[in-house]
Write a protein that binds this DNA or RNA. Structure first.
Length: 740
DNA sequence: CGCCGGGGGTTCGGA
DNA sequence: ACCCCCGGCG
């Protein structure tokens, strides 16, 4: 057990205190992952539990994977059979085993939030509500919230309807639940709620798991919601060996139902809980740790702890002040270059973290121009692209033809003569017969479609049945290839010769490649389509493309996705009132405190160097906004801040430190009109073939050809990243680059 | 049927 | 700026 020697006293106690309820409050960078992995390895090596008797719930697939690998290193291959994964993946697995008990099939579909929103929109329309008054997104959020608190449609109807608004939510909620059920589909919330229903209805199933899971660990406990809390408590009720790990200072998911109450409830439910505090930070310099402490001290809601470090003092936090976001991005790039030189950092030592995905654009442009390799995490992930969702919809139909959202996507794509008229008739008939859309299609001859439509439907149904056959008998790859070809999807994208069409076709091919890889390396699963699909809905962009992981690139991501990661040098950009903290959160203390915790998460990602940055103006929602520096900048104790070189910037720093924060709502549009955008085009009358130019949107490129005269003068330009475009010079704003 | 342009709303984060 | 939705037209 010599691995225990790597631990400090608090860590070792947290590892060895395995019996009964335990709570580990783990400050940022305090070796939390190490404690969790050692604890699981310890349980196995002590002979206290077999690997399959351990349940470890993590927040992301990535965390699960990483921990599993680390345990394998200590405890060997046996670690493979630990039940380790996200709540959603573990319980979808369990639900598939017992699906029939809940009148689902094991091939039930998991609706992602897009699917569920689309269903809600459809229901609002069918119930003839005005979606301008009753916003689908808001109804979706309320339904989700209710479900997270284990309130079903029935209970909502009886206890929570108080006015017209909740009345509508209630009606939609009821219809939504029925439709999901009819479609043999579950949404993300169901993956947490249904296990509890299963356990309530079938105590013997609950007992089985209660006895099986001798030790339960829950990571990122501060980000669990009520349903997750209850699952944990139910499953742990027999052995009561539950260990929750978390940091209240890093709770950043209240917006989706996570509740800090869980930590308090845990203490209430298990009065004899042993509490461990990991307070020594091994990650960051003492300046960074202290700066982080000075920030979080502004929060009222927090557990008492004292995060400290014995690491070197390090550099002060650098404040970057810029005129606008382009300027900001350039400065970040310059600093990356400088630190690469001075500190011998690699590209992968850097992270640029922002509040909203939209902010990645300017950073991306600057990095590209500077020739610095980067990778963006998050944003529109592969599996959320249209063409991939289309392809996946076909695969879903092959396994679960009752899947209404998949059906709606593909029934007329590629076009096959089943238009809106037929679709409305289909929806109405399904409602009338109280069956799934698929059942109506199978019985189309009784449903009163036009002859044309009926024939088209017949062909569609036969096609899908063919796909079902392939899915049952063949490997995932061969079934998927068959489906891609015979659905007409590949043909459809292939015949689209635009850049976009080509990339869609390529993406579908890439999906097929991924399925092929899955078929060849099924790990411990069978390489059939259903096991592939079971994973897809729960994948996030963090999980895909692990192959690129060791590439030497700068990382760009939101603060939310940065949780759990660390980098030598971190840039926190866009520190402006209205952006971070966000406009919506300024009104309430709770929400502001969540933003502050998010800032704290960002600050504590940095190991050696931390830069925070704000721009005085920023192009947001299409127009320029003037912003005040974020209040969070002021909250860093000035002794930890580095005055920038140059008088102007020193003055700005003083201003931040001394002037009270104005109370007016930021983000107000600048009243001054033109010039719109600060991209000013050069005079293009001397533009000639071969010149290097820059376009605001398309980036840099080279002029291939110029034709036409005067008004009609057009240039064909090959852009470095966006391909060939023909621009009318009368309108195009081009900057002629000096390197001609 | 599908493309295009106009208009309105967005307004963050993600398993 | 972007996305979504809708209406008009080829």
């Amino acid at each position: 057990m010599d691995f225990l020697n790597d631990l400090n006293e608090a860590q070792r106690q947290a590892v060895e205190s395995v019996e009964g309820p335990n709570m580990i409050i783990a400050g940022a960078g305090s070796g939390k992952t190490r404690v969790i992995t050692y604890r699981l390895a310890f349980l196995m090596q002590q002979g206290l539990a077999e690997s399959f008797e351990l349940l470890a719930l993590t927040f992301t697939n990535k965390a699960a994977k990483e921990m599993r690998e680390r345990i394998e290193k200590i405890a060997g291959a046996e670690a493979k059979s630990i039940w380790m994964g996200t709540f959603h993946s573990i319980f979808s697995r369990i639900l598939r085993v017992h699906a029939e008990k809940l009148n689902y099939t094991k091939d039930f579909t998991i609706y992602d939030s897009e699917d569920s929103l689309s269903l809600i929109k459809s229901i609002i329309k069918e119930l003839k509500y005005d979606d301008k008054v009753h916003k689908p997104k808001s109804i979706q959020a309320q339904i989700s919230r209710a479900k997270n608190f284990l309130i079903d449609a029935e209970e909502y109807k009886h206890k929570y309807v108080t006015d017209e608004r909740t009345e509508v939510v209630s009606k939609v909620f009821t219809a939504y639940s029925a439709r999901c059920f009819k479609a043999n589909s579950m949404d993300f919330d169901d993956l947490l709620v249904k296990p509890l229903e299963l356990f309530a209805a079938y105590p013997e199933i609950l007992h089985r798991y209660q006895h099986q899971f001798r030790y339960i660990m829950v990571d990122e406990f501060q980000d669990t919601n009520y349903a997750q809390y209850l699952i944990t408590r139910r499953l742990g009720a027999v052995h009561e060996n539950i260990c929750v790990v978390g940091d209240d200072a890093q709770s950043i998911y209240a917006f989706r139902g996570a509740t800090i109450e869980n930590i308090l409830n845990f203490k209430k439910d298990y009065p004899d809980v042993k509490i461990h505090k990991l307070e020594q930070n091994y990650r960051s310099t003492s300046i960074i740790v202290n700066a982080a402490n000075s920030i979080i001290a502004n929060n009222q809601n927090q557990l008492e702890k004292n995060v400290f470090t014995e690491n070197e003092e390090g550099d002060k936090v650098k404040l970057i002040v810029s005129e606008n976001e382009l300027d900001e991005a350039r400065k970040v790039v310059d600093l990356i270059r400088e630190q690469k030189q001075v500190n011998s950092f690699f590209h992968k030592d850097f992270a640029i973290l922002y509040r909203t995905n939209a902010q990645s654009r300017s950073m991306e442009d600057a990095l590209r121009k500077g020739g610095i390799p980067y990778r963006i995490y998050g944003g529109l992930s592969f599996y959320r692209r249209k063409e991939i969702k289309d392809m996946v919809a076909y695969l879903r139909m092959a396994l679960n033809p009752r899947d209404e959202e998949a059906l709606k996507r593909i029934i007329n794509f590629p076009t096959r003569g089943i238009g809106p008229t037929s679709m409305n008739h289909l929806l109405a008939t399904a409602a009338e017969w109280k069956v799934s859309l698929w059942e109506v299609l199978e019985n189309a001859h009784k449903a009163g479609f036009s002859v044309m439509a009926e024939n088209a439907i017949l062909r569609f149904v036969n096609m899908i049945k063919g796909f079902q056959g392939a899915a049952q008998t063949e490997t995932a790859f061969s079934a998927a290839s068959y489906i891609a070809k015979h659905s007409g999807l590949l043909q459809e994208f292939h015949s689209d010769e635009s850049m976009e069409g080509r990339s869609r076709w390529q993406n579908v091919q890439e999906l097929l490649n991924a399925i092929n890889e899955f078929t060849l390396n099924p790990e411990d699963k069978t390489p059939t389509l259903d096991s592939f699909l079971a994973e897809v809905a729960l994948l996030t962009d963090q999980d895909e493309k692990d192959k690129n992981e060791d590439k030497d690139t700068v990382s760009l991501m939101t603060l939310h996705s940065a949780k759990g990661l660390e980098f030598n040098s971190v840039f926190l950009v866009g520190l402006e009132e209205g952006l971070f903290p966000g406009m919506m959160s300024i009104g309430s203390r709770e929400e502001l405190e969540e933003e502050r915790r998010l800032f704290y998460v960002g600050v504590t990602r940095a190991m050696k160097k931390l830069q925070i940055s704000y721009a005085r103006t920023r192009n947001r929602f299409g127009s320029f906004t003037h912003n005040e520096p974020s209040r969070f900048i002021k909250e860093i104790k000035p002794t930890y801040l580095q005055p920038m070189s140059g008088d102007m910037q020193r003055n700005i720093l003083q201003k931040i430190a001394t002037t009270p924060m104005p109370q007016r709502r930021p983000g107000v549009k600048d009243p001054e009109p033109a010039p719109v955008g600060d991209f000013v085009g050069d005079d293009l009358s001397n533009l000639t073939n071969g010149m290097r130019i820059e376009h605001n949107k398309f980036g840099t490129g080279r002029v291939l050809q110029i034709e036409g005269r005067e008004e009609d003068r057009k240039a064909t330009i090959l852009f470095d990243t966006k391909g060939e475009k023909i621009l009318l010079l009368k309108y195009a704003k081009l900057r002629i680059l000096p390197d001609n």
